[in-house]
Amino acid sequence: MTTNKVRFAVIGTNFITDWVIAGGMQDKRFELVAVYSRTQEQANLFAAKYNIPYIFTSLEELASSDFVDAVYIASPNFLHAAQSILMIEHGKHILCEKPLASNVREVKEMIAAANRNDVVLMEAMKPTLTPNFLAVRNNINKVGKIRRYFSCYCQYSSRYDKFKEGIVLNAFNPELSNGALVDIGIYTIYPMVVLFGRPDNIKATGIKLSTGVDGQGCVLFKYTSKEMDAMVMYSKIANSSLPTEIQGEDGNIILDRINIISDVRLMYRGGGGENLTIPNCGHEYYYEVKEFIDLIQTGKKESAINSHENTLITMEIMDEIRRQLGVVYPADQ
């Protein structure tokens, strides 16, 4: 690895990759050296956009390259596991877009491969690594005994308009392991797991679309030993302006948006409150790239926050929600 630099390749050339690169470029240790795309034309266009020196249309050749230290993967969900494991087996560190994989089986295979090859594997779940989520964690004791976690992320998708016209785009295609839960519902669940761990009971309801994926869902959780419950709502077929809230006996913490936390307020039961908001010093995707590079350079193999355990618990929850809703992916077979 070059001195104080981590040489990145990216798999996937969509808008999320653009955002991650924008965040990465705010870290002086980030060096973008390679791009993979299925087509030479798309690879050339993306490389020209960022002045990327190496272009690949073969995953095997990328995996075998000796001038790449780490790979950011933003391909369709059903490809995450196979592509990650291929790179891991060649000694590459992996930052993989959420959801890490299609199901628990694949997540376990990825974690085992990372442990076997002594490399970093981290799910790119950005909100939990931001200063404002840290502010929540550092002040959560102020609400007293916690009784409920509530989170909502409902965003009407423009792709749903096409769906109603009979055109099925990637967002609603089960063959790609897609749907509302794994696309945006995960944002409501992962922070819950980081804060409170694995729930004891899960009860899910939702709407399954004609392609077999979920369009929206509502899930109730029970944390018996903590004497608290949780509720999350997510949708790609309706909008909502509801915030995320942690409710305690002495007060409550309100987060404006769980996917991009811009405002955090603490309201005391007896009156008054605190503004816990910490202004971001970087791009919203900067913090996940920084965390990932920190892990590589300190020799740690997983994040303490976006840990293997938290990723696995979140996927176990999502597998159970899909089971209750009857959502099955080809990758599950």
Results as ranks from 00 to 15, higher is better:
residue 120 V to R: 03
residue 82 A to C: 05
residue 75 S to E: 11
residue 45 L to C: 05
residue 311 T to E: 01
residue 312 L to G: 11
residue 8 F to E: 07
residue 73 I to T: 00
residue 330 P to K: 01
residue 159 R to G: 13
residue 245 E to Q: 15
residue 198 R to Q: 08
residue 105 R to K: 14
residue 82 A to F: 04
residue 155 Q to H: 13
residue 299 G to V: 08
residue 152 C to R: 12
residue 230 A to V: 07
residue 233 M to Q: 15
residue 27 D to I: 02
residue 136 V to T: 01
residue 321 I to W: 08
residue 298 T to M: 11
residue 154 C to M: 14
residue 227 E to T: 03
residue 162 K to P: 03
residue 23 G to Y: 07
residue 238 A to H: 12
residue 292 F to E: 11
residue 277 T to H: 11
residue 230 A to L: 06
residue 42 Q to I: 12
residue 244 T to W: 07
residue 121 L to T: 10
residue 26 Q to M: 12
residue 289 V to M: 09
residue 130 T to C: 06
residue 299 G to E: 02
residue 71 V to F: 04
residue 282 G to Q: 07
residue 10 V to N: 12
residue 46 F to C: 01
residue 220 L to D: 14
residue 127 P to Y: 04
residue 74 A to P: 09
residue 141 N to I: 06
residue 92 K to I: 07
residue 109 E to L: 15
residue 295 L to Y: 05
residue 261 I to V: 09
residue 243 P to S: 13
residue 43 A to T: 01
residue 18 D to Q: 02
residue 2 T to Q: 13
residue 80 H to W: 03
residue 213 V to F: 03
residue 81 A to S: 15
residue 63 A to C: 12
residue 33 V to R: 02
residue 198 R to N: 02
residue 43 A to S: 06
residue 237 I to F: 11
residue 175 E to V: 09
residue 80 H to I: 00
